[in-house]
Design a protein around this nucleic acid. Sequence first.
DNA 1: CGCCATGTTGATTTCTATCAAATTGAGTGG
DNA 2: CCACTCAATTTGATAGAAATCAACATGGCG
Lengths: 247, 247
Amino acid sequence: MDNTARLSETHAHSSCAVRSRGDDCRFCGVRHLSICQALESDELDLLEKMASDAHFDERAVLFREEDEAGVVFNITAGVVRLVRSLPDGRRQVTGFALPGDFLGLSLEKTWHFSAEAVTGIVACRFRRAAFEDFSEKKPHLLKKMHAFATHELGLAQDHMVLLGRLTAEEKLASFLVEMKRRWSRVAGHEAGLIRLPMGRQDIADYLGLTIETVSRVINQMQRDRRLVIVPDGIRFVDQTYFDDLAL
Amino acid sequence: MDNTARLSETHAHSSCAVRSRGDDCRFCGVRHLSICQALESDELDLLEKMASDAHFDERAVLFREEDEAGVVFNITAGVVRLVRSLPDGRRQVTGFALPGDFLGLSLEKTWHFSAEAVTGIVACRFRRAAFEDFSEKKPHLLKKMHAFATHELGLAQDHMVLLGRLTAEEKLASFLVEMKRRWSRVAGHEAGLIRLPMGRQDIADYLGLTIETVSRVINQMQRDRRLVIVPDGIRFVDQTYFDDLAL
DNA sequence: CGCCATGTTGATTTCTATCAAATTGAGTGG
DNA sequence: CCACTCAATTTGATAGAAATCAACATGGCG
């Protein structure tokens, strides 16, 4: 693979600061959302010793499909898109990782998708082997990871229904409802503003549509007074409309 | 839910024989394919004591979306379709379970999809709670289950690419290549005949197409001498054509 | 043999993709 | 501060792949 070319092509940069100021798992803002919720205070201390902070700039590549998975990540801040690409350039975004989401649940040696920073990213980083060893010593962590993995499997099945059987309008409605639910969970309260830091092309590749269709449908929804488009996202005007359409 | 109506609607029957003749995990034909591969001989003995044989007729419903998951299954023989349905009747087949596949990896209390027998089915059945307890006492079993779950997650992501980004022809080619690979694995050698016990509608609902499109594409492939349609399946004539098209 | 579910084939429509162009807007440098 | 640039987005016109609508064929099974 020609990494240099692909990096410049996407204007990617990554800076991985050594552990910065007061990184303390006990005060972690996403602990209650992440697999760390499985751990007791003393276990958190052990985990913290294994962790290092990772920062990525917008558009940076965390890892690529087929890359060796030397490290795993717990996203602390920002949004990451998970991408599978076809040889001819067609892309499927298989998911967006938000704060609290874990990359590397499978503990497999190689990645099966690419991860690209949609925004600036802060993440807890662990060496995969060390994390795997730790999880083997802490069965409740492994069990939590398994629960997270099977939860994702359920989400993946939801997404198959969306991709296989929903119309463009239903796809967009489902996506916006999903993002509202997920941001609300991250914020800890109902989010009025639904942040959409990813571009229209990312949304299109997530929903199996073209960028033009995404743009048309969202703007039609605005014309129909179902939502308003605001900087960095949208707001629901007619929540019922979305709840009725969404998967 | 009106189970009676839904049962008659699908002509479902189920017969669950008490453990029949020589059921012995050690001689199980799908052990090397299933999660049981994680277990030692003495553990297999314990597992066997927990298992009961389950037989289902063609079209029987093993369980429904939202049902409580009182039991989990290891499929020994036959094909099961896994289905998610929308209120208006639209269906997405999220997968087909073949011999060696496990239903209930998530160990969650409720099912998130329905499972329907495409053919007559034989399965090892376990009470979920008992299986969960067993897996907690045998960490390598839990780890194997986690590996199976994350493997399925990878397959789910493959399927998202298929649903979101492939053409009808590519979808069919990918499906047929997948079935050839999976049957070959079950048989232990390259399968010449690619068995397709599921109907055209099931294939359509798996690929996000209509039955007419599935029929047209397969028959066009036959006219183009890419495959031959035979009773209960198809045979590849031009393997390269399929390998080039498939995901 | 004839019935009914399943599958195939044909005609037409529709939704979304594609092709093309205009607009917006964030960032840059004068 | 403002013109300029370039990427991202929006909008419009047209094409095309697959869905829909509608017969018709097949074949397993009583």
